[in-house]
Design a binder for these strands. Structure first.
Length: 282
DNA sequence: CACTTGACCTGTCCGC
DNA sequence: TGCGGACAGGTCAAGT
């Protein structure tokens, strides 16, 4: 599920709702998804919540709990005063906990539920002092970091030969946080065909992509992310980015610019959406 | 070394 | 209604 904008939205929700609380109990229903000792977190006050790439970090006085939501992970928070009511969703947001609730964090002021339909996600506990970048596999700079410059981006691209620009944007070691939705949206905004080989991109095309990365990601963050199926904000609300998406999940629908039907093709196993008229280069 | 292909899981949807 | 296959926000290890 979540790409950077979704994880960032969840991070902001957690920041608002759980920082300052104490972890009272951790119930691990699916041991496979919890790496490390859950007992370490008990009685720990939550000092900070932050994000690196698509990984959330709940930092307590002594430890860091890293959380990856992969495709279908959710974090839902229920404060004590909130009555858990019925929900329109069949599966993804039934009254909690439900069959897909795998880890439950009981906090001093409420409960945080980790749900994951496909069980790809995980929670790992490390010491607070551990270097997060060493714990996350080959992760590049954040899109809004001062180290993510046009020069850096161009140099990285120059080292790639055969792969397409779509695949490159999904490579977390180049720039962290872009996934399938926003890769397609960034390429539409840049008017570049997703199958274009990286080596065939012109300087001005590279610049366009570089400029559209923060533009699209910030727009998505401001929309609270994209709720395609399972993604929800921590209070259960959906993100609204898909309402303004130009190509993702819009196969056969008219392009919002030129009315040409949007196409969907497979690139390296992932579906890719584009406008065959607006994104001609390939 | 650069790049591609499955595997990890469980569910929904679509065509026959 | 049932059955098979494709598909779903992401990584990774193993294979070529």
């Amino acid at each position: 599920m979540p790409e950077l904008p979704e994880v960032e939205t969840i991070k902001r929700g957690l920041e608002r709702d759980i920082v300052g609380q104490k972890i009272i109990e951790v119930e691990v229903r699916a041991p496979k998804l919890f790496i490390g000792e859950s007992a370490k977190l008990i009685n720990e006050p939550i000092e900070k919540v932050w994000r690196r790439a698509k990984v959330l970090i709940i930092q307590t006085k002594r430890f860091s709990a890293l959380i990856h939501l992969k495709m279908t992970g959710q974090l839902i928070y229920k404060g004590k005063e909130i009555v858990i009511g019925g929900h329109p969703d069949k599966l993804y947001l039934q009254p909690l906990p439900h069959n897909h609730t795998h880890i439950i964090f009981k906090l001093s002021g409420g409960t945080l539920y980790f749900n994951d339909l496909r069980k790809f996600g995980w929670v790992k506990v490390f010491n607070k002092t551990d270097d997060i970048d060493e714990l996350i596999h080959a992760v590049g700079p954040e899109f809004d970091s001062p180290t993510f410059t046009l020069k850096y981006f161009s140099e990285k691209l120059a080292k790639k030969k055969a792969i397409t620009i779509k695949q490159l944007l999904l490579d977390q070691s180049i720039v962290a946080g872009i996934g399938n939705i926003y890769a397609d949206e960034i390429l539409f905004a840049s008017k570049i065909h997703p199958l274009t080989k990286v080596k065939d991109l012109t300087k001005s095309q590279i610049k366009k992509i570089f400029d559209n990365i923060p533009k699209i990601l910030n727009l998505a963050i401001n929309s609270g992310g994209s709720s395609s199926q399972t993604y929800r904000q921590i209070d259960g609300k959906m993100g609204t980015y898909l309402e303004i998406a130009k190509v993702y999940k819009r196969e056969k629908l008219p392009c919002k610019i030129c009315k040409t039907p949007i196409k969907r093709i497979k690139i390296a196993g992932r579906s890719s959406h584009f406008c065959p008229y607006c994104q001609k280069s390939s």
